[in-house]
Structures are given as C-alpha cells and as structure tokens.
Amino acid sequence: MRILLIEDSKKLVDSLRQELTRSGFEVGSAANGELGLRLALGGTWDLVVLDLMLPDLSGHEVLRQMRAQGCQAYVLILTALGAVEERVRGLQAGADDYLGKPFSFDELLARVQALTRRKHGQRSPVIRIADLEIDTAGRIVRRNGAVVSLTNREYRLLELLALRNGDTVSRMEIEEHLHGSRSLPLSNVVDSAVCNIRAKLKEHGAAALIHTRPRLGYVLSAEAP
C-alpha cells in the first residue's frame, strides 16, 4: 500500500512517515503543491494524503488536476480548514475523505485502512479465508485462533494477497507493493517472503493457502486454483 503525503510541515511529514511506515505502508512525500502533483501523477499511489494550504499550488488545485488527468488514487484531505463548506468543497472536488487538523494518528490510520479496504471491495476490517483470519485494523493474523507472528513485510504481502480475494497477484505487483519504486527486478525477496509466510501458517494449520501460479504470481485461497 503506497501513500503519498503532500504536506508542507516537515515535522508532520516526518512523524507521519515514521508512523505509517511502521504500520506497513510505503510512504512518499512532497512539501509543495507542484511537486506533489508531479509525484501523484507520475507514480502508482494507492492513497494521497493532501494538505490544502500548500506553497506554489493549493491542495484544491492539486486535487482538481489529479482528477482531470485521470489519477484514480484515493485522496484523503488533511487540513486545518475544517469548516463545513471547506469539507464539502474538498469532497465535491473528488476527495474520498477529509480529516481536520489537529488529529489523532489513530484516526488517520483508521481512515487510511478504511480507504484501503474500500479499494479492494472489503467492508469488514477482518478478512477470513478458511481457517485464516486477518485483522487489517489491528494488523493481527490468526490461524485456527492462534496468532501467527509475521514481520512487517510478511504481513503486508499476506494482506495484499488477502485483499485481492482469490485473484492472482503478480510478482511485480507484490514487489512494487513491498518496495515501491525501489523494487529490484529478478530478486528473490518475494519468493523468500512467501516461503516464510507459508512456513509460519503451516505451524497452525495443515492446508496450504498460498498457491503459486507459475509465471503468473501467487494467490491466497482455500482451494488450489
């Protein structure tokens, strides 16, 4: 899950980047509107957290141009302008959510997760596949009731597969999800992570849930494709 922060407060960006990264997101940032728009249009972002009062180009203008140029990323407006008309204006311009400053990081995280679920058609924060249960809000994985201990990268991979709901996810997509633009082609990072997850899941249940589709990618489902 890739998030772009367009915010001119460096301290806030640093704190949010740290927290969101810890929560399993890959985070990019821009300190002004022009750079933010360039990054938003030039990369594959799942979510853009957008301040409205930005140097060079206002957040409203960034959002307008993003939507005008077909950018489909979710947009969460994070701004000090909390008046109703400002919220309405932001949402009508194409934003998907609106959060006023000051805010609790927990609320921001919950909204980011809700938008993530919406992107994959999930309404419940808990995804169940056979005896596997993934709590996307608490970032907790259980199998047969027992907690499966995963690293940050392993969790993000498993969550991606779970959110795709039985669809095959390509290796490239997984790499980009895990590492963004810094992904290294032909590396075996994905295979290694999948191998680890399989091993950890097997400790609490016998049935294989992650299936390899040769030259296509991986799929998480109760039955083999």
């Binding site: 407060s9 704190s15 927290e19 000090a80 909390g82 609790s104």
Partner: peptide, 24 residues
Amino acid sequence: ANIAHELRTPLAELLVLAETAQRY
C-alpha cells in the same frame, strides 16, 4: 485560514509526536 493553518498544523505535529512517543 492562515491563522487556522499556522496554529493547527503545529498542534497536529505535537499530537502525532506525543502519540508516537507513547506508542513506541
């Protein structure tokens, strides 16, 4: 709007920093 931005942004910075300190 500017006053709101100038006051609320540092408040947001304070809150997030405090939450981070509590959590980690």
